[in-house]
Design a protein around this nucleic acid. Structure first.
Lengths: 213, 213, 213, 213
DNA sequence: TATGAATGAGCGTTCATTCAT
DNA sequence: TATGAATGAACGCTCATTCAT
């Protein structure tokens, strides 16, 4: 039942993640989380103000790890494109290795009350910042489209990752999420259209027309 | 209060959408929805099995409109790329015109219980199919990357749209969502990387290297 | 269990009075009151906002009867002193006939939270007003000491009654409360000191000195 | 925070009085009282059996001071009426000088559970005894009405004082409580009726008729 | 003595759902 | 069909009390 660690804070967070992944946000009773953490129900309130606070804390803690990881890895290559590849790979790899976390972040955390949602959005900004920095660097060095609002690019990158992970969770983990990293990266950077078509396509072909503007 | 129409079914759905957009999924009480629809609380149960059923019905109804719209519009051009452009534009335009609907689909509907989530996913498949058909047609005609799993492309397309709309809602509708259609289309089709770089890039540049594989 | 009356409002008030008299304010569980009233716990909240509101309502209702009674009886005689005698008699007689009510008003109602106390004080003002009117009339007609702040007189009158009833309750109803009316009236009107002493007392005797000022 | 004295018993009682006066009986948490006393929560249980015991102890201690004071002062004059005057003045003066104590005794202590109430009543008997002794002495020396049950007189005296102090607390200390001593004494001893009326009153006037019986 | 982290019983309140009319 | 009063299960949270140190 109880996590071996004497650190009840971590034990409760772990239990919360497990229970939420299993029972869903609404079904996650404090008493259940406490039991799973090996503490009394009241003890939860020594570490967290209330149920929403526990959930926000869980999200902050878990995303914090992703953010740290992403920030650390970013420096391994000078090329922004390479940094982006690395970011995508890390994201998918991390969630791939922690299915419970993926379930919680992709599905259950979005079932919180509106107030909690707002706080989670704030926390997400920290992760968005990591992407934004990569994008802006890439735009400055001319690797990424400089004329496009970086937020749009971020929406493309994060939206694609998010959708991919959600699809993985909803499928019941039926495919290899980490293996999606490379193709996802290619799609994101190269787009949907057939390359090389540019030379032969007829006028008005919208798939190449885009680059004209 | 009540929708004038004698069609209580529609009146309840409308009220549900309004109340959920305003009070959030959790705060949406049946009694409130009923009052807003101009019927008694018990009447809701003459048209819907229970609360989850009401929510799923709402989602099905609203997404149904989007799907019909997307299917209808798809035929206006033979070019799959053009169809995609049209789809993206329709999606953003529709939600742009119906903020309440956007709030409900992007934020509040994701707060439902796990069971509801599953059903919503099923309904989403209908919308995904529309995208999938466009993508597959594009791959067959050679407009879209043929070697890539169409589901990945769909994740890119839908993920980007979804993220864009969510950002719009979370921002408090601070930007022109419909105006995002064209740049979003270009990003999705052309990718993040600077075009034309192909000729001058040095070996190993990952932003072009991708197309080699 | 249930009061025969279909009037659930009254049934809940009756049950509340009974349960509070028996278990005390703190021990009076809503579930218990509901059971005793023959309704479901949730039903209580159809008639009362919350527990404090139920208590305040109970007090208002019960005191309202006393106030009406006191106001009605006041007109039976023109003499303010006689009105006071009547008031005192009515007060003691009413509580004497309703031990449960006496317990609740004298003991248990004073165990409410500070907020409830404040509201109860407001309600008490209605009862005080009845006394005040009698007193002021008596002062104007010269029957009662005109130079004394009427509020002080009221404190004497109500304080004595209140203390008497509380003593009765705390004693376990060991004496005849109604029989206390006449002697109480005499004490209140004539004071503690031996009458007739005025003529023989030596200078400085404080029991008569008072009348000199 | 903590009282300087090493006497934790007294420190806890002081803290209890302060916290109860500020937060009310219900809101007085042991942990808060402990913090205010500069000790750990557990330490409270080294000096008091439980929360009710702490409250009863507080009341006993505070009332003990009043009783001692009243007993000491009683001997300063041989005249029972003068003793009564002194008693009334002491009572109002003491509470006037200790608003916190007045709040606790008049309002908050009455919010205790039924068990605590019973014990408080017992303690009150000690104070009542002081009044009773004065009264009985006065009756024996013929100063106070000999035919009246001394308990009735006590109810008049204490009830009036109690009501006066409560009115003072509820008013937010808006008047000079100590200044009420003399008029209160006069009322108590002389009664509500106009003196001197005896000679001129018409037959049946109830305000004088009383002394006939 | 003293600590203070941990306990866990206990209860007010909400609200989806039912059913007699 | 329609009503809406009544239901009652379900749960987050508090805080007096304990006990290992």
């Amino acid at each position: 039942m109880a996590t071996k660690s004497g650190d009840k804070f971590a034990a409760i967070l772990d239990a919360a993640q497990a229970v939420i992944a299993r029972q869903g946000y609404q079904g996650a009773q404090i008493s259940r989380i406490a039991a799973e953490a090996g503490v009394a129900a009241g003890t939860v309130y020594l570490y967290f103000k209330n149920k929403p606070d526990l959930l926000v804390s869980l999200f902050r803690d878990r995303l914090g790890v992703l953010i740290e990881q992403a920030r650390g890895n970013r420096t391994e290559s000078a090329d922004p494109a390479e940094k982006l590849r690395w970011f995508i790979w890390q994201h998918l790899k991390s969630l791939s290795a922690h299915r419970e976390l993926a379930v919680v972040t992709q599905i259950e955390m979005r079932q919180a009350e509106t107030d909690v949602q707002r706080e989670i959005s704030q926390i997400m900004k920290g992760y968005f910042q990591v992407i934004d920095e990569i994008i802006e660097e890439g735009q400055q060095t001319g690797v990424f489209l400089p004329a496009v609002d970086p937020k749009q690019i971020r929406n493309l990158v994060f939206g694609t990752l998010d959708q991919t992970v959600t699809a993985w969770v909803m499928s019941g983990f039926q495919f290899d999420l980490e293996a999606m990293a490379e193709p996802t990266y290619r799609l994101v950077t190269g787009g949907v259209c057939q390359s090389g078509q540019g030379g032969t396509q007829r006028y008005g072909d919208s798939c190449t027309a885009q680059t004209d503007v």
